[in-house]
Amino acid sequence: MSGVFENKELFKSGHTACAGCAVATGFRHIMRAVGKDCVIVNATGCSEIFTSAYPKSAWEVPYVHCVFENAAPVAAGVVEALRAMGNDHTKVVVLAGDGASYDIGFGHLSGMLERGHDVLYISYDNEAYMNTGVQRSGATPWKAYTTTSQVGSKIRGKLQNKKPMTEIVAAHGIPYVASSTSAHYTDLEMKVKKALSIRGPKFLNVLCTCVPGWGTDPSLSIQYLKDAVDTHVWPLLEIENGYLKMNMKPEKKPVETYLKGQKRFKHLTPEDVSEIQKMVDERWEGWVWREKVDTERKKELGE
């Protein structure tokens, strides 16, 4: 392919993601920032299926997939092998969904982080097991409908809150943790590049719209992610060497802006929405408070 349509990207067209898949958009940004000198380790999930159906691959870089829950230790093995064989430069990057990261592979991810392998782990979080047809995960938000957090006469959506993964990962004391979305490409690419400039384990939590999973119009996949940030539902932040920094403090839009039009939330009552607003506000205030404390502490320590 040449001329106008020459595709020079490391993550190619022809993958079989759904129309409007924000994971695919995110991967384009991530790969632009990662560059050629890498190994991609993918967990089982949507992105593995839509990029690597034998014999066709959307990857222009070395790529390996093994099973659902072991992307972190496979990546650890890749990086230890490269370093043992004298390769000191190739970046090892995990791409894994929230099912693989928040749930089934959680312990193995924790082990990889604790041991300090030189791996960038990117969790693309679309807030449920989308590959198997939208089942709830630890990342599914409160009240959201999935096929295993059903809306019935007694129970109306997920009973539990979303797992605070960014904080849990940060609690490992690793050098770099950040959150972003597929829509905020400048932020996302900056974070991928920064993460890759740091030795040791790094974690990025990237929110991605899922058209069939969220029940949204495919054309709005980017808009919903912007709304998630603008409503303070999904803050863009970095925790570098333990210090929190909020990358964006948008003027808060009401949470309805984000919830409306998503079929997974269509059963919400006005009371549910105000409860969500309260939860979002409390979490946001928590982040703002922590940023303040961290900034002061950083100043005190002269770092």
Binding site: V39, V41, V64, C66, V67, E69, N70, A72, P73, V74, A75, A76, G77, V78, V79, E80, A81, L82, A84, M85, G107, H108, S110, G111, M112, E114, R115
Partner: peptide, 19 residues
């Protein structure tokens, strides 16, 4: 590692990298 599951997964990754 933190489990045998990660042990075998690591050597899978290592072997895939040519080790």
């Amino acid at each position: 590692v933190e489990s045998e599951f990660s042990a075998i997964s690591m050597i899978v990754g290592a072997s895939a990298a040519g080790a």
